[in-house]
């Protein structure tokens, strides 16, 4: 047990650093690919690393009207909680570092905290633009929460029905038992709809176009982040980057948990390496569809359209998916 504890403790900084590196790399790829889609050359992939390094050198201004202790503490909270979520997620067939200490429900709640930190930071910075941005961030947050919850609960339901007695909300268990194998044709369709919902929720969670109403540089001058500079801004930037990895990994754990090593017949260290590469490929595909492509393809929605898109369409699609899955379950009982 002590050995396990030591190993887990040793894994924490590795996962944290890997998360931050991957997040920044994703940011770089995001900027390059969006530039290419707009027929520009775009910055090098290492651009986010340069940006963060520069931001850390800049002056850190706390406005006179701001509530200093909140203003300065929320970037730390946002970054640390985002990294903390990584510890609850299963990677490449391994159990989460904090397996048994928290499950999918906890992860969904933890996902709220970086957004809440942004909201608090916005309200505490004493700027009108930031207040407007913070209100928009809150509204966005409330809008995407329901479809996200429906998708997660449906997966847990399928898994608990297929494997009685299993801890269905445990992300380790979810990743070990792919939901696709446990349902019939109707359920497959339902799962596909839920995957679609999750991918639609991703840009809202990440605050990228078309759901970047809270930051909206061209209307409210950077919104929630308007007063942030230097070190604090860098921390929010990092938190955002890591959040993309977190969300990508959640989608992978829920919907695409397969490894490649088993089907290729590789064993030992090579299997871990193959799975790791396969995981990176999956992560890239999920982030590409859920964030990069959608950002380049669609212009910003208005806040009313964001609410309509999530409370209306995304909720409808997710409930339809849940309905199909229930029909599938019923048809098996009969």
């Amino acid at each position: 047990m002590i050995e396990g504890l030591l190993l887990r403790t040793a894994l924490v900084p590795i996962i944290a650093c890997a998360g931050i590196l991957l997040g920044l790399l994703y940011r770089g790829l995001d900027r390059v690919l969006v530039a290419r889609m707009q027929s520009r050359v775009g910055p090098p992939v290492t651009q986010p690393f340069r940006d963060v390094k520069k931001l850390l050198l800049k002056e850190n201004i706390v406005p006179r009207d701001a509530v200093g202790w909140i203003f300065n503490s929320v970037p730390v909270i946002a970054l640390s909680v985002t990294v903390l979520i990584l510890l609850y997620l299963p990677f490449i067939g391994m159990e989460p570092v904090l397996e048994g200490h928290g499950d999918l429900i906890l992860v969904i709640y933890l996902l709220l905290i970086p957004s809440l930190a942004l909201v608090l930071g916005g309200f505490s910075s004493g700027s009108t633009y930031a207040t407007v941005g913070a209100q928009r961030e809150m509204v966005t947050m409330m809008s995407y929460e329901f479809p996200l919850a429906v998708a997660s609960v449906s997966i847990a339901w399928i898994i608990s029905a297929a494997n009685p007695g299993i801890a269905a909300f445990s992300l380790g268990a979810i990743a070990m038992n792919p939901a696709w194998a446990a349902v019939g044709p109707l359920g497959l369709l339902g799962l596909a709809l839920l995957l679609l919902t999750m991918l639609a929720v991703m840009p809202g969670e990440l605050g990228v176009a078309p759901f970047d109403v809270a930051e909206a540089e061209t209307e409210i001058a950077g919104g929630v982040l308007v007063e942030y500079s230097g070190r604090n801004l860098a921390m929010f930037y990092l938190a955002d980057a890591v959040k993309a990895v977190v969300l990508g990994t959640i989608v992978i754990a829920l919907f695409l948990p397969w490894g490649i090593a088993g089907s290729l017949g590789i064993t030992g260290m090579a299997a871990v390496a193959a799975d790791a590469i396969f995981y990176l490929v999956k992560l890239f595909i999920v982030i590409f569809v859920g964030s990069i492509f959608i950002r380049a393809a669609i212009a910003r929605f208005r806040i009313t359209q964001v609410v309509k898109a999530y409370w209306g369409y995304a909720t409808f699609v997710s409930l339809l998916g849940l309905l199909l899955i229930s029909l599938d379950m019923l048809s098996r009982l009969l």
Binding site: R31, A35, R40, V41, G42, P43, P44, Q47, R50, D51, Y129, E215, E217, T218, I220, A221, G222, L225, V226, E227
Partner: peptide, 10 residues
């Protein structure tokens, strides 16, 4: 943006 320049809102 090739050179890492970016217009910011604030």
């Amino acid at each position: 943006e090739r050179f890492g320049m970016k217009l910011v809102g604030s």
